[in-house]
């Protein structure tokens, strides 16, 4: 295997992806990502100088519509699906600073 991914790299990417991985998951993913990225070397190694990238397969223009008030999702129905809601809003744990 020529592509080696360290456990520290896995932990860094997991932090970017907001995944609280257990240690055994870190070890497994280091191996798996190495194998998959190794397979991807055929693409990484191609000389594609001057070839434009394609982000989207079909040429599309932005679609605009008049900015008119229309019915939207029912707020009570949406909040009913939330893990926690209060006063018509989503409730989350502390975002910054120390607990009061």
């Amino acid at each position: 295997m020529s592509t080696r991914i360290s456990w520290d790299q896995v932990r860094h990417v997991a932090n970017l992806a907001r995944l609280a991985l257990a240690d055994d998951e870190v070890a497994g993913l280091a191996d798996d990502l190495g194998v998959i990225l190794d397979h991807a070397q055929d693409v990484a190694a191609l000389d594609l100088e001057g070839i434009p990238p394609t982000a989207h397969p079909i040429p599309l223009e932005n679609v605009l519509r008049p900015d008119e008030v229309r019915p939207s999702l029912d707020r009570a129905e949406v909040l009913a699906a939330a893990p926690e809601a209060e006063d018509g809003r989503f409730r989350v744990p502390r975002i910054m600073g120390d607990a009061p």
Binding site: L37, A40, V43, A44, L46, L48, I51, P52, P53, T54, A55, P57
Partner: peptide, 13 residues
């Protein structure tokens, strides 16, 4: 990786 893959997409098209 991602940039190269997007260029390959152009080649396939």
């Amino acid at each position: 990786y991602y940039g190269q893959a997007q260029k390959v997409r152009t080649l396939i098209i």
